[in-house]
Amino acid sequence: MALLKAEELCYHYRTKAQTVRAVDGVSLELERGGFYALTGRSGSGKSTLLSLLAGLETPMSGRITVNGIELKRDVLTLYRRNTASVIFQSFNLFPLMTVKENCMYPLLLQKRSERDAERIACGMLEKVGLDGTYFKRLPAQLSGGEQQRAAIARTLAAGTELVFADEPTGNLDPKTGGQIISLLRSVSHDEKRCVLVVTHDLSIADAADAVFRMSGGRLEE
């Protein structure tokens, strides 16, 4: 059984002038241990689809089942806490928390002890290339790439089965970008977690187990 199964997802943005069918009848399946790429032109609905899959937005129609359980309002909080996490297109760290505090935050929500949280967070930060000298800095005291890596560390530290990444390497130099991609790949392949990466980077798409192409809110075959 697929880890995540989406059927006929629709999401429309309604503005006064028009209705944008950002996601328009998307169905897909994601498997445990899979490393997927989602590509498409700008404005094709990738980020919107990601929000739906990650439980940050509720689809207007269609349904998502994760481990056989349908994503409904009442399970969303726990889904986001324990099952799915997101790396955002633009890094979204809490500005007044240190790098370490940012990484510990989802772990603490998972009711882990302070010590466990700290250990896991620090380990993950080091994995993305941020050593102890960064831990006590505030996001504003990091470069853009460093912030992105901290955000990635926070998402991966949460240890969720599903990891959604929205152009995670956009702000990174090619070498660090490559390292992050291989980290994500190992997360999926070695830890049997499922990673979906939105990207324009063809090299990432090539490395993926499967590639979804989006256009005008729909998946291309």
């Binding site: 806490r81 324990n82 979204n92 935050y105």
Partner: peptide, 8 residues
């Protein structure tokens, strides 16, 4: 939004 996305 961030807090919620992280499971709060």
């Amino acid at each position: 939004g961030l807090m919620r996305s992280l499971g709060a």
